[in-house]
């Protein structure tokens, strides 16, 4: 049996006196798509941010590709090249063109040459249908277009794991589908390992190999995707699915 790509064990997170995450443990195998579901304020986004070093945690261990994460700044800088993250608010750099946004990581962080990176980036841009926008500035793009570029920016580093934090939450409904299609392609054709926080239940149902249901900062259940949507094990999850009305 191969070791999981990511192992989270007994992770605890608190801000001062408020306990945000309690005893979070799960495994994520390479090629698997894990969806984090749960009501607002259940700690989904915080958990995702812990996995990228944007939030520190107080107890527990993270193991990524066999390496224990010590939470040192240097180590996170290395790991972030392998763990890509896409945010709800896109957060493209407004002073840089689309291409400059994407190339910053590969050229400056990974010190790869422009000649080798450029063809890869052009291919990625083509895949997300943004090839004609490489010299545009973020302010000239729509929300959906910005988010597609943000995904390419993360992919350009060739990560082994992608974290998606409510990436469609600030998009107009008609833009949501484009972005979700791209994420699904990434899972289907590239077998990208992903951790996805979303409120789009249809999408979650289509994409999830596993569902991690969180409430009040605890894992309530971890269930294979198809089963979770048909027969959730806990009443919390049943109520949650009923309230989502999809």
């Amino acid at each position: 049996m191969s070791t999981p790509l990511l192992t989270v064990s007994h992770l605890e997170k608190s801000y001062q006196k408020t306990h945000i995450l309690h005893d979070i443990s799960f495994d994520l195998d390479a090629g698997e798509v894990l969806t984090l579901l749960g009501p607002s304020g259940s700690g989904k986004s915080t958990l995702l941010r812990c996995l990228n070093g944007l939030e520190a945690f107080q107890a527990g261990t993270l193991t990524f590709a066999g390496e224990v994460i010590t939470q040192k700044a240097k180590q996170w800088q290395q790991l972030r090249q392998q763990i890509g993250m896409v945010f709800q608010s896109y957060d493209l750099f407004p002073n840089r063109t689309v291409l400059e946004n994407i190339l910053l990581g590969p050229l400056k962080v990974q010190k790869r040459s422009r000649e080798t990176v450029l063809p890869e980036v052009e291919k990625l841009l083509q895949q997300v249908g943004m090839r004609d926008y490489r010299d545009a500035y973020p302010r000239q793009l729509s929300g959906g277009q910005k988010q597609r570029i943000a995904i390419v920016r993360a992919l350009a580093l060739k990560p082994r794991l992608m974290l998606f934090d409510e990436v469609t939450a600030s998009l107009d409904p008609e833009m949501v589908r484009d972005v979700l299609t791209i994420i699904r392609q990434l899972a289907d054709t590239h077998q990208m390992t992903m951790l996805v926080v979303t409120h789009e239940m249809d999408f979650a149902q289509q994409i999830s190999d596993q569902v991690l249901f969180l409430a009040d900062g605890r894992i309530q259940e971890q269930t294979p995707g198809p089963q979770f949507f048909k027969r959730p094990q806990t009443s919390r999850a049943q109520n949650f699915l009923a309230s989502m009305d999809f």
Binding site: W76, Q81, F87, D91, L92, G105, L157
Partner: peptide, 8 residues
Amino acid sequence: EAGQAIGL
């Protein structure tokens, strides 16, 4: 955070 996330 976006900058940190690409490993800067």
